[in-house]
Design a protein around this nucleic acid. Structure first.
Length: 871
RNA sequence: GGCGGCUUGGCGGAAUUGGUAGACGCGCUCGACUCAAAAUCGAGUUCCAACGAGUGUGGGUUCGAGUCCCACAGCCGCUACCA
């Protein structure tokens, strides 16, 4: 961009160092089986969320997390660890295919080009990756093992007794039929209503629907035959084992809420004049006496059967209106309750009261049983519905206001005795009433909610009318897509049954196709490749493909042993790179956007592999850190439309890779959301130039020579020595804490000290460069080489600080009167209370504020402060 | 509506177990160098003329609160009829 001469020649040396690191394989990580492998070295596995190689290239959010992990990786290497810090590409997926369609090029071509661009950008930032371990999820060898893992899942079932996945071969041995086994596989085919997007030409997982709708695509509900993964079997383990992980509480909570466990009961309601029963799930079985009507989801299979002739037209019209509205934003529909009476009645099992059965879209087919018992007095939604349609509202729980402050009083100021005496009025609005006391509820009357629930469940179970039940929001994972750019399923169909293909046929790659545009029909694209689909023995290939998540579910495993052709990861590599903790990866850094998708799917796959004995830890990621979003200079989210996007390439060109790395780390705490400021980049760039000038002087001809201030003599400046050792100490501690911004500020202080001193001792300055190296490796290496340093800093050990250099003989004590700062006194660091006290009382400034007052108390904090309390 | 996070100068942000509020950087002001400018180096910079006041607001605990407790407000993110 600008031709202005740079204060330090980063353009000359950054590329040179990058090339040297690459050609010398400085950051190659030896693993088991390697000649250079030393099993005695402690391992450290630090992982980045690998990028999806879009056409837009890296954005500044990528280098944020990547620089953080790079600093940690380089630091751990310097402290004697065998560090695994790899990089790869999540290169399958819908966006790649959309991009290919847009540009008219085959996704294989655009993906290769995008990867190449990402690789160039990553390399231009000097990250210490072991490039020999680079992987892309689209690599045929990678696809092979993705498909292999799918087959492990396909060939497993969830054994309820051992609470883990087991091979289906065990069931075969027990004489189960093929049909019975297909019913329990962890990968199964089901006809379910799914989210179908005509313009994307594929179905989407529940989790993905919002994202694509947000991008302007249409999505509608359709029943289709799809592959599902039985993740719901792992719901409880996915909740429980979160406790073993060092993850931010917010992310754990997000996953817990997503899995959405609730405890309650299922209850059977007999339909009047019908054989059928309707089962409902409720978290409030204690309110059963207050169930005054029932609601079925409009799609509920019993609706047509029970609807009376008189209501048939109304019900059908309503069902159609719901179906046609299905691709509208539900939020708009939610403002008002709607529904239709079926004409049928159910019998409330506790009191034999006949209650009307309605259908309404506020009850969804996908959760619970698709039917509810409505208790309008104690559920907001039911209350709203009952109020609108004039249905009976019966209060069955007396809310206890606040037992600690007003024992015995209820929320509407009536005593429990009044309510028990029947002196109650209908509630003006619904109340959740938990905890509360059961009223108007027969055998439950007078019981607090928790006990009433237990008693009702017991009653239901002994009368065979229902049972205790735990319900999860989590649904099975819709695993198939109709797109071209994904892993084909390693499955063929014959006589209506699916069969796994043999392992030695893997990888099964998609055939070349010229036209992979969405056709508007839900037929998978691969159906067009008839030569590929139809096999000589009359069987046909499965034409669905896997979602993008498949590749990202296990990539961290492949990095450990990326070129293994016999297994997805060798037992040796897995054993070495795993830890004694539940999670395999020591540190995983990435954005929050994957809190419930990738991070949940990965945990699920890992647990299946663990159950089947393929890996030795139950969790993939021990410690997780989320980097905060980087906003534009205007404080808004970066976006093309706002025009506030910062391109890392531009920053590297203008200020250098070290400046970009350092700035992103200096902006603020890693996990915090923070706005970009180009002036801040200039600031750190200026800092780097100051470091440069400590060592190197520019000459008339523009070349640099070693500054005469640099001298290879012992450091006699105690103050300088203290700053250097404080810096060594603080930077190390701050890296451990991931507090990079404060580490950098300490290095700035140290540089200022070097700038202001007359003699810069070579030894101390080199120690400083070693500490700076993980942050600004190009600059540190270059200066070190120019001042005659031997070898590469990247291969040095981290310097130890000298505690003796840190001690100060005198410390500034703070003297307060009534908690207010009145004087500062230089005293010996071990000054006792008596010495400090007499010095303080002698201070004129203190006297000003204590004159005429009586000293009541003196608080002394050794080495810090003295507070005189006087009035 | 629910859940989570955040709130400190003109700006980004520092502040061990409660113990000097504003480290470090940006911006700004002044000075040096220069014919001049840029760059660089040096000094200063929370507000107020001053007394004093001051970490979103109001209370509380404490010798002492940005930090702990209670109540409230505002911004941001996620989620949304989950029975």
């Amino acid at each position: 961009m600008s031709d202005v001469r740079k204060p330090f020649p980063f353009r000359e040396f950054e590329l040179q160092w990058q090339q040297r690191w690459e050609s010398e394989k400085t950051f190659r990580t030896p693993g088991p089986g390697d000649v250079a492998f030393d099993p005695a070295k402690p391992k450290y596995y630090v992982l980045d969320m690998f990028p999806y190689p879009s056409g837009a290239g890296l954005h500044v959010g990528h280098p944020e997390g990547y620089t953080a992990t790079d600093i940690i990786g380089r630091y751990k290497r310097m402290t004697g660890h065998n560090v695994l810090h790899p990089m790869g590409y999540d290169s399958f997926g819908l966006p790649a295919e959309q991009y290919a369609i847009k540009t008219g090029q085959h996704p294989a071509i655009t993906t290769a080009a995008n990867i190449e661009n990402f690789r160039r950008q990553l390399k231009s930032l000097g990250f210490a990756y072991d490039w020999d371990r680079e992987i892309a999820t689209t690599d045929p060898e990678y696809v092979r093992w993705t498909q292999w893992i799918f087959l492990q899942i396909y060939n497993s079932y969830f054994c309820e007794d051992s609470n883990k996945a087991r091979p289906v071969s065990e069931l075969e041995a027990k004489g189960w039929t093929r049909e019975q086994i297909d019913e329990v596989r962890l990968a199964y085919v089901a006809d379910t209503p799914v989210w179908w997007s005509p313009d994307l030409g594929t179905v989407l997982a529940n989790e993905e629907v919002e994202e694509w709708k947000g991008k302007g695509h249409t999505v509608e509900r359709r029943p289709l035959r799809q592959w599902m993964l039985r993740i719901t079997k792992y719901a409880q383990r996915l909740i429980d084992e979160l406790d073993t992980l060092d993850w931010p509480d917010g992310i754990k909570l997000l996953q817990k809420n997503w899995i959405g466990r609730s405890e309650g009961a299922s209850v059977q309601f007999q339909i009047s004049n019908f054989e059928s029963q309707i089962e409902v799930f409720t978290t409030r079985p204690d309110t059963l006496f207050g169930a005054t009507y029932m609601v079925l989801a409009p799609e509920h299979p019993l609706v047509l059967e029970i609807t009376t002739a008189g209501q048939k037209d109304a019900v059908e019209i309503y069902q159609k209106s719901i179906a046609s509205k299905s691709d509208m934003d539900r939020g708009d529909l939610n403002k008002d309750k709607s529904g239709v009476f079926t004409g049928a009645f159910a019998v409330n099992p506790v009191n034999d009261v006949k209650i009307p059965i309605w259908i309404a879209d506020y009850v969804m087919m996908g959760y619970g049983t698709g039917a509810i018992m409505a208790v309008p007095a104690h559920d907001e939604r039911d209350f709203e519905f009952a109020t609108k349609f004039g249905l009976e509202i019966k209060e069955v729980v007396a809310a206890v206001c606040d037992r600690r402050t007003n024992p015995g009083e209820t929320s509407d100021n009536r005593s429990a005795a009044e309510i028990a005496g029947g002196n109650h009025r209908p509630p003006l609005q619904s109340a959740t009433c938990d905890p509360g006391i059961a009223i108007n509820s027969g055998f439950l009357d007078g019981l607090p909610t928790a006990e009433a629930k237990a008693k009702m469940i017991h009653w239901l179970e002994s009368n065979h009318l229902g049972k205790r039940r735990i319900q999860y929001k989590l649904r099975d994972w819709l695993f198939s897509r109709q797109r071209y750019w994904g892993e084909p399923f390693p499955v063929v169909w014959k006589d209506g049954q699916h069969h796994a293909i043999s392992e030695n046929e893997l990888p099964l790659l998609a055939p070349p196709l010229d036209d992979y545009k969405p056709s508007g029909s839900p037929e998978p694209i691969l159906t067009k490749a008839t030569g590929w689909v139809n096999l000589p023995d009359g069987s046909v290939r499965e034409t669905n493909t896997m979602p993008q998540w498949a590749g990202s579910c296990w990539y961290y495993l492949r990095y450990c042993d990326p070129s293994n052709t016999n297994r997805f990861i060798s037992h040796e590599a897995e054993a070495y790179w795993t830890s004694d903790k539940p999670g395999m990866v020591d540190l995983y850094v990435g954005g929050t956007e994957h809190a419930v998708l990738h991070l949940l799917y990965s945990r699920f796959w890992h647990k299946v592999l663990y159950d089947l004995g393929h890996v030795t830890t139950p969790e993939p990621f021990q410690r997780l850190v989320n980097q905060g979003l980087i906003l534009g200079e205007d404080g808004q989210k970066m976006s093309k439309s706002r025009g506030n996007v910062v391109n890392p390439d531009d920053v590297v060109r203008e200020y250098g890779a070290d400046a970009l790395r350092l700035y992103e780390m200096f902006m603020g705490p890693l996990e915090q959301v923070k706005p970009w400021q180009m002036k801040g980049v200039e600031g750190v760039s200026r800092f780097l130039a100051r470091v440069w000038r400590v060592a190197l002087e520019e000459q008339q001809d523009g070349s640099f020579r070693i500054s005469p201030k640099i001298q290879d003599i012992p450091c006699t400046d105690k103050e300088l020595l203290r700053v250097v050792h404080e810096t060594i100490k603080k930077v190390g501690e701050d890296i451990d804490k991931l507090s990079f911004n404060t580490a950098i500020s300490q290095m700035m202080i140290c540089t200022n000290a070097f700038t202001q001193t007359e003699i810069v001792p070579l030894r101390e300055f080199t120690q400083f460069l070693t500490v700076l190296n993980p942050f600004a490796p190009h600059l540190a290496e270059e200066i070190n080489a120019r001042i005659g340093g031997k070898g590469m800093l990247s291969e040095q050990t981290w310097p130890a600080y000298d505690p003796a250099a840190l001690v100060r003989s005198e410390i500034e004590f703070i003297i307060q009167v009534n908690g207010k700062l009145r004087d500062r006194l230089m005293l010996s660091k071990d000054a006792g209370e008596t010495a400090a006290q007499s010095a303080a009382l002698a201070s004129a400034k203190v006297k000003e504020h204590t004159d005429g007052k009586t000293i009541r108390k003196i608080v002394f904090v050794p080495g810090k402060l003295l507070n005189i309390v006087a009035n």
